[in-house]
Amino acid sequence: MSQAMMRVTVQRYRPEQDDAPFMQEFEVPYADDMSVIDALHYIKDNLDGTLSYRWSCRMAICGSCGYMVNGVPKLGCKTFLRDYLNTGLTVESLANFPIERDLVSDIGDFVEKLEEVKPYIIRQDAVSVQDGEHLQTPAQLTRYRQYSLCINCGLCYAACPQYGLNNEFMGPAALTLLHRYNQDSRDQGRDERIDIVNAEEGVWGCTFVGYCSEVCPKGVDPAAAIQQGKVESSKDFVMSKLRPRRSS
């Protein structure tokens, strides 16, 4: 029985020997249920063991396998060869990030930005265990729930033209996480995060292109979070004129 084959073009870059990234073609056996990371595994196991790429969970929750697939930011585990039979398949490292090696992009800047927005619940008043749990109504949950589904895969950064033009911009995922905690009724850290929201590098660096929301593999809507952030920042702008929050 002859096995159907499919050509996969993969970006290679080995900094110790290549001056610039280049494209390399591989023939991989085709199956209907084969994902992009399955194809990369086949290449690494059978054709070229030096190929480097990130992956882990194979089920769209770890956020490791973000690549550009035919120029569109995609998760390798959630993208299938069967959808590229007519177009061919080209896999590259995530756009807007430096290339570390082959398909591995350096997402250090993104991780720093995530830390910067303090993506955790901040309390001003200490609450003891005896006080019981924080109760939240379904309405309060709805305010932030979809934003909490982010898996930090970085696809939205690869999609964002503003981040591509100027990576001082905090970018979609970080601003979405920031908004997620500001919207959480248990959180009291808004004042520690609002300076980032108000800045040019914050929500105001966004021009509402909306591609971030289109490529998000988890159905999060970062563009909406950022526009809501603009409303928050505008309110804060007016309030700061009427009643200065603190000296700064």
Partner: peptide, 12 residues
């Protein structure tokens, strides 16, 4: 980092 408040709310 020190963040500067943008004047964008007026224009936005």
């Amino acid at each position: 980092k020190q963040y500067q408040r943008a004047d964008e709310p007026i224009f936005w």
